[in-house]
Nucleic acid binder design. Structure first.
Length: 244
DNA sequence: TCCAATGTTTCGCC
DNA sequence: GGGCGAAACATTGG
């Protein structure tokens, strides 16, 4: 179950499939799979919460949504929504949405906003939110995949706590230095998240996500939906400042 | 058994 | 058209 780092984690597991030739694609997803037939996987990439299988003239995007999962050389009882078969192995996706794109990923997506890509450009993100999203709450902005590609609810909550910013603060009210620090924190935490995945300890290493009290001063946390995004948000009312 | 959840799209209704 | 809310999704874990 996926935020950006979980997808990178999956991509890393699939490295040996680069250069391999797909013998068949299957699954109940509506995407036309007829072009994926005895062709070579040129590359496997990510963009935020999307996993891409790159072929010569097109690529396939896989999105796991909230319930999706991937198995290599194993199957669940239910049918896969998408699967790639090889002579001696297979990759199966469950409850995944797929989309076939012409061209290459960089034709369609701006890598500067992807928190886990080499091309990530924090200054570009800062500029974008200070130009066009000043009236929005930072808690909402963080989930905007066009601005913070790959950020999910856990990264959002944990980053705001670490940066000591209340999610209901409007972008225009947050000092620039604080925004810069938040943007750095998001990226640093995303890499920590990726590391935690190796030992399946994302939740136990979280500071306030799904917790009751602030680890710093034992203040009772607030846990409710905030902003426009209907997602449960955890906040320490003492540590996190509401800028206004 | 029930409920919520690391997500996004679609649909119906103003 | 836009904005908003609810539903949907071959799920899963507490």
């Amino acid at each position: 179950m996926p935020e950006g780092p979980s997808i990178v984690f999956l991509k890393n597991k699939l490295q040996r499939f680069k250069g391999q030739t797909v013998s068949e694609a299957s699954g109940y997803s509506e995407m036309d799979k007829s072009a994926i037939d005895h062709i070579k996987i040129m590359d496997i990439e990510t963009y935020g919460k999307n996993l891409f299988f790159v072929f010569k003239d097109f690529f396939v995007g896989v999105h796991l949504g909230l319930f999706g999962s991937m198995l290599v050389n194993k199957r669940k009882k239910v049918n896969a929504s998408f699967a790639l078969h090889f002579p001696h192995s297979e990759i199966n996706f469950y409850v995944a949405k797929t989309h076939l794109y012409q061209g290459k990923p960089s034709d369609h997506f701006n890598f500067k906003t992807d928190i886990l890509k080499k091309e990530y450009d924090g200054e570009f993100v800062l500029k974008s939110i200070r130009e066009d999203h000043t009236e929005e709450m930072i808690g909402d902005v963080l989930l905007d995949q066009k601005l913070f590609t790959g950020v999910g609810n856990i990264i959002r909550i944990e980053s705001l706590y670490r940066a000591k910013i209340h999610p209901d603060s409007l972008v225009k009210d947050i000092p620039e230095k604080k925004l810069v620090y938040l943007i750095e924190t998001v990226v640093n935490y995303a890499y920590e998240f990726l590391d935690f995945l190796k030992n399946d300890e994302v939740k136990e290493k979280a500071l306030i996500y799904e917790k009751k009290i602030c680890p710093k001063d034992k203040t009772e946390l607030i846990a409710e939906e905030m902003g426009k995004v209907h997602r449960k948000t955890y906040v320490c009312p003492k540590c996190q400042k509401l800028y206004s």
